[in-house]
Structure formats: C-alpha cells, structure tokens
Design a protein around this nucleic acid. Sequence first.
DNA 1: CTGGGGAAGGGGCCC
DNA 2: TGGGCCCCTTCCCCA
Length: 758
Amino acid sequence: MIMKGDLERMAEEFGHPGGGLKTMLDAMEVPSHARHLLLQLNTQRTKGFLCDVIIVVQNALFRAHKNILAASSLYLKSLVVHDNLINLDHEMVSPGVFRVILDYIYTGRLSEGDPTSPTEPNIGAVLAAASYLQLLDLVALCKKKLKRTGKYHLRPTAGFLPYSKIGPSGVVGGRLRVSTPVIQPCFPSGVMGGHTPRGPQLDELQPHPLLPHHAGELFAPVSTQGPQPYTPTQAALPPQTGLRLASNDRICSPIYGLDLSKKSPGSQSQQHLSHHDEEPEGELSHRTSPMLSPRESAGKMEAMHRAGSLTPHSFPLLNPPLASHHPHLQRSNSQGQEPYPCPPSPEPSEEPGERGREVPSIYRWVKNEPMPYNVEDEDEDEDEEDSGGTAEQDKEVHHHKNGEEKLNLSEGGYGRGMNCDGEDENGTGSEETGSSEGRPSPPGARGRYHMPYEPESFGDNLYVCIPCDKGFPSSEQLNAHVETHAEEELNPGGELDSSNSNSTGKPANTNGPASLNNTGSLHSPFLESKSGQNLHPMGIGEMIRPYRCSSCEKSYKDPATLRQHEKTHWLTRPYPCSICGKKFTQRGTMTRHMRSHLGLKPFACDACGMRFTRQYRLTEHMRIHSGEKPYECQVCGGKFAQQRNLISHMKMHSSGGAGTGIGADGKLKIDFCESIYPLSKYAAEHLGLKQEKASELLAQASQHLLADAKAIESLYPLSKLTAEHLGLTHDKMDVLPLPPIPQSLPAEARTIDRYSPS
DNA sequence: CTGGGGAAGGGGCCC
DNA sequence: TGGGCCCCTTCCCCA
C-alpha cells in the first residue's frame, strides 16, 4: 500500500507546492487516512466512478483518475493534463504490465505474479515499463525485488524492446520475459444484468494482477484460466460496443481508444512533446530511470512521436496502402480542411496476425493524423468484413442491441451498408441505422433526390428521384426533373408534398402526402415545415439561405453548414467509429457515439443519480421527477414528458401512420393532421372529393373533434369501454356527428371503422 | 397476446 | 465543436 511515506515522497518528488505537506502528513491525526483515501480511490477506479481518463495500451483500455496518475508520474502527468485518453506505447508497456502498474499506483503493491505463467508480467517487464513511465518508486521497488532475487542487471533490455522483437517465448536475453497476454474476454455472460459486486475491501487489495479489482480496465487482458469477474464498468458498457460480452470468449472485435475530450482528438503527440519540452531539463533528469538516461528516454519517445505514431512503425504491415482517390478526400486532404483522423473501419479478424492492425488506428485516431482515406480503404474494410465475419462474430454482432447490427457482418451488409449505412445507399442520408441492419432501406421510404450510394441498383441512371423512382444519368437531369416536382408543389393544383423537398434540412418523407412527417409538429403539412420555413425549395428562402447544396435542394445560411451538409451525400462518411466502425458525417456525432461505447455519461440526475450522455436527455429525464409534461396531445389531451412520446402517441391517433385515406383494411382513416387542418389535395382526391369540399368537411369534423370528446371518439376507433364510459352503446355511437362520407368512395371504403381496435 | 404509454438509447443535422 | 432538437427505435410495464 502506498502509505504515508509514499505520499511524502510523492510530495517531494513532484515538488508539490507547499512543502508543508510532509508536515501535514506527519501531523496526520488519523493515521489510516491516507490508506483509506487510497482504498476509496481504488474502489472508485474499479467501479469506473469519477474516472476521467482512459489509458489505451495496445488493445486494452484502462480507466483511471487523472489526479492519481499525475501524482504518480511526471510523465503520466504530462499526458493526462490535456487529454482524457492516453495512449501508451505497447512496445514499452504491455496491457498486462500496465495493469500491474496501475494496481501498484492505486494500491502500493506490486504484483509479481507467477513468473512461470505465460500471462503474468514479471518484475523485469514491470521495471522496464515503470522506467518508461517514470514511476520512480516502482522502479526502485522493482530493482529492489530483482536484486533480492539476483536478477537485476543494469542494462536496458526487454522492457524497451518492442514485443514484436521479443521472441515468441517471451524471453529476451534469456532472462526477462515480457508477457503480452493475448487479449481475452473480460465480460462474463450475463454480466449486463446489473450485478454489482462490491469493491475490494481493504484487505482485498491483494497483489495479484488478475483479481477483480481491475474493473478500471474497460477491456483488459485477463487470464485464460477462467472467466473474469464481472465489473460494473464493464456493465456500464452498452451492448453496442461491438465487443464480445460473453464469457469465455475472446474479444474478437477491435478495441480502440478515443479521445472524448472536448477538443479535437489531435496532436496528442505534439502535446506530449510539448510537455516534455516544457519540462525543465533538470526536473526530468533527476527522475530518470537508471536504465535509460533522460535524453535516451525522451529521445526515444520523441523518436516515436516523430515516427508519426507511438507505435505503427513497428507494424509495417498494419498500415494499408493509402492511395487516395476519393474526390472528397483528395480535396480535403490537399486543402487540409478535412483531415480524416479515423482509420478505415476496422473489422474483427480471426487471424491473430490481423489483430495488430487495430493498433495504429488507435494512435492515428488519437493523434489526429490526417489519414488518407479512400475507397481502397473502404474496399479493404469490406473485404475484411466479408472475410472476417465468422459465425461467431455474426452472433456477436447480432447480439448487439438494435444499433450495431448495422455492421451486419454476416450479410456483408456492412460492406455495402456501413459505409453507406443502408440509408446512405439509397441516398437518404437520414440514417435509419437502428433498423436498417445494414441493408438499404426501401427506396422512397425517406429520401433525397440524389441516390448515388447504390449505383448498381440503377444502372447508368445513378441519380434517382426518390418520389417517383425515376433514374437519371446526371445530377443536372435529375435536378431538372426535380424542378418539375417543385413546380407541382408551387402550383396549387399540383400534388401536395410530392417531393417534400424543403429547406428545413429534414429529409423528405415519402410515406405519403398525409403521412406522419408532420404530425408530430402539430402543424399543417402544407402550411409550413417543422422549422417554420418555407417548404418550397425556391423563393425567399433562397435569399436567406444562399448556400445551396449541389446535390439536393437544401440551402444554408453559411458555407460551413453547407459543407457539413454536403458530407451527407458523400459516398464515404468521413468519421468512422474506431471501435465499431460505424461511420458518421459529423465528427461530433461520432464523438458522441464514442461516449456511448465507453459509457461516459457526464450528465447526472441530482434526484436519482441516473446518468446520461447528453444534457438534453437529462433535461428530459428531469421531467420525470418534476412531473412536468409539457407536451400535450391536441386530440385527447394526453400529456407527455417527452415530445417523442407525444409523436408516437399522435401516430396512434393517426392509425399507425397510414394517414388519411383508405387504410390497409380498406376502411377510411382520418389522419390526425388532416383532422385539424385542411385536407390535402392528395387526400381529397383519394377520397374522391374536391379539396375545398374535403377541407370544409374536415373542418366541421375538426370542430367536433376539438370540442367534444365524443366527437373525438367518433373520428377514431371507439373502444367498447370508452363507449360505456360515455354512456353510449355502440348503436348510439352511430349518431355521433361525422363528416359525410363521399358517395364516390367504394362502399367498403365508406365504412368508417369506428369500433375495431385501431 | 396485443397495444399503448413511459422511459431511454442512438443517430442526423442545423445552428 | 457542441448544443439542441428531431426522428426512429427498443425495452419494459401494464391494462
């Protein structure tokens, strides 16, 4: 355990202001205070509580507290000061060794482990790593232990040798065995259920690296000898992590680090260097490991940084050829505007040799290295995905809740879909990733006019008008065609909402003219869009929004927004998640997505402690406690805390979104909006009415509807229960006022389905 | 078993 | 770059 003496030494070591600390510690009235404090910290680490930094070592992630790391090592201090995610060179520190080191930092105990175990880091490796990390106390401790066993020799050895340069036996120089445990599962099955083990008690802080108190590891190598205990941190991981969560499994998916700091995930190496540069020479020198001079140490690190990464140079095969011929990328790269910090989507590979491929991605991502990202990469991804998708992986992928099955390895859906994400392929760009499962959504479900993502579907006519499904060989021709839709919209006699091309930024909803795209907004579909902006693609809006997308009808106030929007049309989304490979058009979305991978939820509810990844969610959640339900159904008066639930509710009112017209069962259904606002031309025609007449009729109905609950029931299926509640029999209900049914409708269509459950 | 509501997760995208 | 809002979806509970 780190005890008072250690703290004193730390205080001196790092020159904390206030030399009075030693005095303070001497005068500590509760001798167990330091011990208790450290215990608490370690407990917190095991639970991931208040952990504010993630350390990536090869493909293992560790959670920890910046303060603790900073207090332990100047080097770590320099790393954590600006970044929430730290990458350690796995050539210098293996995951297993770092786990031991982290344990030491938090407990003051050094786990020697079983020197004969292939998975146990030994003291030599720890010494080397401690020296690299400038954990001077640990260095001294290791030396002491080695000397005790007669193994210590003053020479830089294995610890500074890349693992790749260490023989398969792990023995270097016949002495130091640096074990790099194969990444193993750390999530027993069923752990997601919420079982929360207690944190290690004081006496449980045993010097064993494989004990369950490594919960701070998000994904850490563990012993192959058995399933590892569940940890709350792991439980906090959403099932979408793309990681295997079952017991006795290996983590088959790549594990990446990410920077969730507010700033862009870049230039970490520069920061590191700068920190070193800032570090006074003397300050560095006096804590340099005896195994490596400060210059050597710093120089080596610097050399590694210069190499463009902390590691990739040792993995020459890990960086695929990076020819760039993607036009967007070329442009972006050449102009330096849009660096692609993220690697091509990695894909789990069964081949052990492939595993290393993941590593550079981590560093590249974190270091924000502009990464030529191109179609070849994409193809490679697809190849990997296609080839690497084993049944096991398939199972894993499909195990994930809703979202990440979008990877859809088994169906090659990722290959086709991930980069396009299904909806991308059909050009909607409005991701329905949660349900598309990597398959392209049916054309026309939602969409833009351009549909360049699945060219094979349309032969030479790559540009497809979603509403009418016509293909065009060029965007110009498509645009010309689209204009006809626009004219139809502008023309009062034209079909309403045929394209729903608007400037609101929301994708056109082609579910039908009376579909629910506006129901939630409580606005007439043809009065205005949700944003209250002109629906028409041309007109005054053009002056307000002069920056028009060349691929669709949207326009924006400023070029940056336009650029942002244009990415939605790109064949390749520029920001892939380095954990699951899902790609995003906006970096912020990707970062947000990453938070969900790591279970980072910065917004906590004061009332119940529940945590959220977004402020908005917390705000929404707080309404549960306050009882506030600001969203009210204009039809039935039901109130909701969440707007989205009101929208869902509205869909219920509108018979599942079928809208006005003849439902699938052939019976008349009245759309919610239509019940309040004038009937659309489409609906009117559908009903065999002139629009004016239909609107008049519906207006009458709306009056009833809004005025009388009975009338409301008259427009919507009335349950027997409700009828009885109203003191009506089903027979009586027939007398409720209803808009006349046009005789032009087929007889069956004229039957308003009042009684059947919707 | 089914449907509706509550609550929440996640992604898109404009600002 | 992040906030905010929208949308879709899922899960759970209950009637």
